[in-house]
Computed example of a mutant assay.
Amino acid sequence: MCAAWATIHRCTLIQHTRINVAFQASIFIREHTFKEKLYENLRGVVSRYALMLIAKEKARVGKCGCTMRRTHGLPCSCQIGRMATIPFTAVDQHWRRLTSTSAPDESQPVLGLSIATELEVIAKMFEEANVPRRQAIKERLREFAYPDQTSMCPPPNKLPTRGRPNEPKCSSRRIPSSWENVDAIAGSKQASNSSAPQGKGCKTRSVKRKSIPLKQSAPKKRSKRIASNTAKLPPQHLKGKVYSANYIHEVPEFLREYVIDIQNVEDDGNCGYRCTSSLMGKGEQNWRQI
């Protein structure tokens, strides 16, 4: 029984936390959909779910049966069409309660709810701060005092945002290299020589040059290697040699005559150190000394 009560208590606490989170979201979150003048008196003081129902009722097309007003205590579509701004009193008290504690009696003065102490601390902080700090405090206070306004201002001049700006002084062309300048000068000289006027009595004869096609060399045929499963045998002058490990067929033929001995070291990732240690005469097992 005690375990069941503990589980029920834990579930109740989770639900209470979710309800408080929803209340805080309704107070502080300002969605873009509800920034119209129609919801000016309801932002931050009415549940977000109620605002969603009002927006859905506003977008509804068809005959209004005033069902929303009778069942939910919210303005229906016919009332919304006649309102420029929905008054705070048009929403039922159920949607205006954004706290999980007991609602205080509005006829009695509220005790313990005052910001006089906080305002004194803020005023003292403002007097002791420097100029940048004062500007920051003032901007934060303006956000609370005037939530519908902003400190941002438009630019003094409308800036062109389309197309590339015209900058005749700056060119995107690269600087030509020295050999390009030489080719350009040589080309201009040849053009001037060909276009120069010739003297009287001088006849020019155009010579037609025959283009001789170059001989295309036949593509080299790659020799096909015949794969064989049998390993190549060592040459005749290596048949008398005896190695520690018979891996001479793995060595290229032009290097086999220089091979003195072959040892097969352990393949544990340190084979290079093992080979070096063995060739230095320290033995394969002393590879850690390398």
Rank of each mutant, 00 (worst) to 15 (best):
C170Q: 15
V91F: 03
Q135H: 02
E106W: 13
Y146S: 03
W95Y: 07
E180P: 00
W95A: 01
A84N: 09
I86A: 04
P147M: 03
D92W: 10
R140S: 08
G81S: 15
G163A: 09
L111P: 02
V131K: 05
E127N: 11
S100Q: 05
P160K: 11
S151Q: 03
Q108D: 01
N130F: 03
R142E: 02
A103Y: 06
I137Y: 11
L141P: 00
N166M: 01
S177A: 10
S188C: 04
Q135Y: 00
S172Y: 05
Y146Q: 08
I122Q: 09
S171G: 02
S178A: 13
I86N: 07
A129M: 05
D92K: 15
E120Y: 02
M125G: 13
I175V: 09
R97L: 11
P147Q: 09
Y146T: 03
R162T: 06
F126V: 07
S107E: 05
K124Y: 02
A191M: 12
I175L: 15
R162K: 13
P147S: 01
S188L: 03
S102D: 07
P87M: 03
S172G: 09
E128M: 09
S171M: 03
K169E: 11
H94S: 07
K158A: 07
T101I: 05
M152D: 05
I137D: 02
E143F: 07
L119A: 14
Q149L: 06
R140I: 04
I86V: 14
E106D: 08
I137M: 15
S188M: 10
A145R: 13
N181C: 05
T99M: 12
L119S: 11
L141G: 03
S178K: 14
R162M: 06
S172D: 04
M83I: 00
P168N: 11
T85Y: 02
P155D: 04
I122H: 07
S107V: 00
T117S: 08
W95R: 02
P155R: 00
V110P: 01
D148L: 04
T161F: 01
E139R: 12
Q108P: 00
G81A: 15
S188W: 14
P176E: 06
L98Q: 03
F126T: 10
E106S: 12
R134F: 04
P156K: 08
H94K: 13
P109C: 08
V121R: 14
I175G: 01
R82D: 10
V131L: 13
L141I: 14
P168F: 03
A191G: 05
N130G: 10
T89I: 07
E143A: 13
M83Y: 06
D183W: 06
A186T: 09
E167S: 06
T117H: 09
K189I: 15
Q108G: 00
K124T: 12
N130V: 07
R133Y: 05
K189D: 11
S100E: 06
I115S: 14
P156M: 11
S100K: 00
F144W: 00
Q108A: 06
G112I: 04
D183E: 14
Y146D: 11
E120I: 10
